[in-house]
Amino acid sequence: MVYVEASVRRQQMVTAARRVLSRDGVARTSVRAVAAEAGVPLGTMQYVFPSKELLLRAVIEDVVDEIAAVLEDAAELEYGLEHAIRRGITSFWSRLVVEQKDLQVMQYELTTYALRAPGQESLARRQYERYASVVAEWCQQAAHNAGETCAVPFGRLGRLVVATIDGLVLQHVSDPNVARSREDLDAAIDMLVALADVRRGARAGA
């Protein structure tokens, strides 16, 4: 058998779990099913992930890492806060909503699981804290780069951006309509830009 580093093997298992979860949902996903999907012996799977709860925790963390990375990469920070908001949200939407509906459905299911599973509740909280933190950081940096001010604290702006996108994503995956969803997204972006009330002048504060 070809040797595979533990970190690589673990990621292969998490990737396989994501495929099973996307296809079958949380309730029907088992460690055995993921082992079969990953092409590894059940004993190996259970050695790395002794329980379904630990496997799902790893999947949640992996999904959060992916989404946070896209959020970090989405905005262009050299052209001011309004540009960063518009570019960041539309880029995220095209990359992780329009093209990956199954990822969004799986994320909502995993969030609900985390909220209901004893001892896992903090996973749901941490994922939204991380998304909001990423957005707040690039909003603040974009404003700083352009010498702009924002009418609301960046932490609040980040939370509201995430909450707005979250609601639109849930609506879109429940009733996909690309044209309508994009019109709603554009309207939501206009509202967020208006809330920020970007003005040039003194450097933006925290």
Rank of each mutant, 00 (worst) to 15 (best):
V2L: 10
Y3Q: 02
S7D: 06
Q11L: 10
M13I: 15
A17P: 10
V20D: 01
V20I: 12
V20N: 02
R23V: 02
D24F: 03
G25I: 07
V31M: 05
R32H: 11
V34D: 07
V34A: 04
A35W: 09
A36Y: 00
A36T: 07
A38E: 05
G39C: 12
V40H: 07
P41L: 01
L42C: 06
L42R: 13
T44I: 02
T44D: 04
V48G: 00
F49C: 03
F49S: 07
F49Y: 13
F49D: 01
L54G: 04
L54H: 09
V59E: 01
V59R: 01
D62Y: 08
E66N: 04
E66M: 02
E66A: 08
A69I: 08
E72D: 15
E76K: 03
L77F: 01
L81I: 11
E82R: 04
E82Q: 12
E82C: 07
R86I: 02
R87K: 13
G88F: 04
T90A: 09
T90N: 01
T90C: 04
T90Q: 12
W93I: 06
W93G: 04
R95M: 12
L96A: 08
Q104E: 12
V105T: 08
M106K: 04
E109F: 06
E109I: 01
T112G: 06
Y113I: 03
L115P: 03
R116M: 12
A117T: 15
P118I: 09
Q120V: 09
Q120R: 14
Q120A: 15
E121P: 07
Q127Y: 14
Y128Q: 10
Y128N: 11
V134L: 12
A136P: 09
A136Q: 09
E137S: 15
C139Y: 09
A142C: 10
A143D: 06
A143E: 12
N145I: 07
E148P: 12
T149V: 14
P153F: 07
V161A: 13
V162E: 01
A163K: 03
D166Y: 04
V169T: 06
L170S: 05
Q171M: 08
V173K: 11
S181H: 13
D184W: 05
A188F: 01
A196V: 11
A202S: 15
R203H: 07
